[in-house]
Amino acid sequence: MAIPYEVLAVLDARFAVVLPHLDERQRRLYLASEAEALGHGWISAVARLAGVSESTVTRGREELAGGAEALGRVRRPGGGRKPAAERDPGLVAARSSC
């Protein structure tokens, strides 16, 4: 099967932008989803472009097919903005008096 150069170029560009920001499991699932979207025979091409083994992509496909659990919380507990009422306790009192 001849793989069109344009498809390989697009995948290579996507991988270069996205993969450095993903952890191991996210990378495996993302690569598997790309291989699935492209259809039969793309596992080896995706693996070669991403610089991973074919078994990594295959394992990702198995996880996706098996209904892998969601990745869960990304931020550590306490991350993000604090509620306005917590930053300024006077806000709650001002609202109650309205």
Rank of each mutant, 00 (worst) to 15 (best):
V74C: 15
E86G: 00
V10G: 04
R59K: 08
V17A: 07
G67M: 10
H21F: 14
G67R: 02
E62D: 14
R81I: 10
L8G: 15
G90I: 08
G51A: 08
I43M: 12
G39T: 04
R87I: 15
V57Q: 03
P20C: 09
E54D: 12
L19E: 03
S44T: 03
D88A: 11
S33H: 11
F15L: 13
E24S: 03
E54W: 06
I43L: 10
G78T: 00
G90T: 04
L29T: 06
A85H: 09
G78K: 02
L8E: 15
V92T: 07
G39K: 05
E6S: 14
E24W: 00
A68F: 04
A45V: 10
E69T: 14
E69G: 09
Y5N: 07
F15Q: 09
A2Y: 06
K82D: 08
R27M: 04
H40M: 11
G60Q: 01
A37L: 12
E86D: 04
L29P: 05
G90D: 06
A50D: 01
G60W: 01
A85G: 12
V17Q: 05
R61I: 13
L22R: 13
L22H: 14
P83H: 12
E6V: 14
E69S: 07
G90N: 04
R61H: 13
A35L: 02
L38A: 10
A16N: 11
L64I: 03
A68E: 08
E69Q: 08
G39I: 05
R59H: 01
A9T: 10
K82R: 14
E63R: 12
V74S: 15
S97R: 13
V18T: 08
S44Y: 00
L49G: 05
V57M: 03
V52Q: 02
L49P: 04
R27F: 09
A45N: 08
A85T: 12
E6L: 14
A35N: 02
D88Q: 15
L19A: 04
E34H: 04
L31P: 02
H40A: 12
Y30K: 10
G72L: 02
R95P: 00
A50T: 01
D23K: 00
G39R: 01
P83R: 12
S53V: 09
R87C: 13
L19Q: 02
E36W: 05
A50V: 01
L49W: 05
G39L: 07
A50I: 01
G78C: 00
S44P: 00
